[in-house]
Amino acid sequence: MVDVVSAAWVSERLGDVRVVDVRDEWEFDGIGHLPTAASVPFDEFRSTEGDVGMLPGRDAWAELLSDAGITADDDVVAYDDTHGVFAARFLVTALLYGHDPAKLHLLDGDFSSWNREYETTTDASELPDVTYEVTTAEETPLVGFEAVEAALDDPEAVIVDTRDPEEFDEGHLPGAVNLDWRELVDDETRGLKPRDELESVLESVEITPDHRIVLYCNTARRISHTYVVLSHLGYDGVEFYEGSLTEWEARDGAIVRE
C-alpha cells in the first residue's frame, strides 16, 4: 500500500522516481523545489464543480499527470510544506484512480525539513512528454453514505473524525472518535512521530488493526494523511469516506453536538 519514505530514500532515487510538489506555483518557482520535481498545485486536483475538495474527475486527473510527466507505471513521491497533508491527498487521489499503491510514496516531512539537509533548486524541471492512462482500481477503500450509516451500528467499526477537537465538538457522526491528524506528526521534524508513539496515539482511541476503520473529515484532505499513515503502518480494511461531512450533512445524516 501507500508508504512513507525518508528524505534519504528520495535523495538516492531522484533519477528513478517522479517527484510531485503540490504547493502553490509561486512557492515552487520562487522559494525553490526538489530537483526533478513537477509542480501540481493542490487547487488543480480538486473538483471545480459541486462540492469543494472532491475528486477532480478522471479526464482532468489524466491531463494533470500527463503534464507532470507521469505515467501509470511510475513510482511517485509527493510532498508539500504542511507536514504532508496536501501531498497525501494527491497520493490518495492517484490510488482512487487506479495507480498501483506500491508505487505511491509520501515524503516523510515536507519541503522545509528537506531543505535542512538536501539540495533545492529554482530551475525548471525537464519533464518527459508522456500520456497518463487512468485505470480502474481492483480494490478501493472508498465508501459512500449508506455504508458509513450502516457502520454506525457495527460493533467492529471505529468511525474516525480526523478534524481538530473544536470542530469535533461542534458536530460529529454518532459514536465517532476524534483523532486530529496532527497528532501523528512531529512539529520539530515535520514528519511522522516514531512508530511506537504513533501506535500509542492510535490505540488510545481504539484505532487498532483488528477493527474496521472508517475515516472522515470535511472534504477528505485530512483523512488522506491519516489513511496514508495507517497504510504505512500496515493496517488493512481502512475505509475512506470521500464525501465526508460535506455530503453527510447535505443528506441529513445524524450529527452529535457536544
Rank of each mutant, 00 (worst) to 15 (best):
A62I: 08
A137H: 07
Y227F: 15
V22F: 05
D24Q: 07
D81N: 14
A37R: 02
V177M: 09
T121P: 05
D210R: 13
T219W: 12
A72D: 09
A72N: 06
D81A: 12
G98D: 10
W114H: 02
G191V: 08
R13E: 07
T219M: 06
G191K: 04
I31V: 13
M1T: 14
D169T: 15
V20G: 05
L127V: 08
R89S: 02
V148P: 00
L65H: 06
D252M: 07
L34M: 13
H232E: 01
E203H: 12
D169C: 10
I70W: 07
G234N: 12
D123V: 09
V185N: 02
G144F: 01
T36R: 15
V19K: 11
V143G: 00
A8V: 09
D3N: 03
V134F: 12
R212F: 02
S66L: 07
A72F: 09
S224Q: 04
A250G: 01
S200A: 13
E63Y: 12
P141Q: 09
V52A: 05
Y216I: 00
D29K: 15
V76A: 00
D51G: 07
A78S: 15
T219K: 11
D59A: 11
G30K: 14
W9Y: 08
V214F: 13
F86L: 12
A87I: 11
V228Q: 05
V40S: 10
F90Y: 05
T136P: 11
F168M: 06
T189V: 15
R58G: 02
E119R: 15
P155N: 08
V85A: 04
R257K: 14
Y97W: 08
N178Q: 07
P101Y: 14
T162Q: 03
G109N: 05
F42L: 09
F168C: 07
E119S: 09
R212A: 00
E166S: 13
R163G: 06
L202P: 03
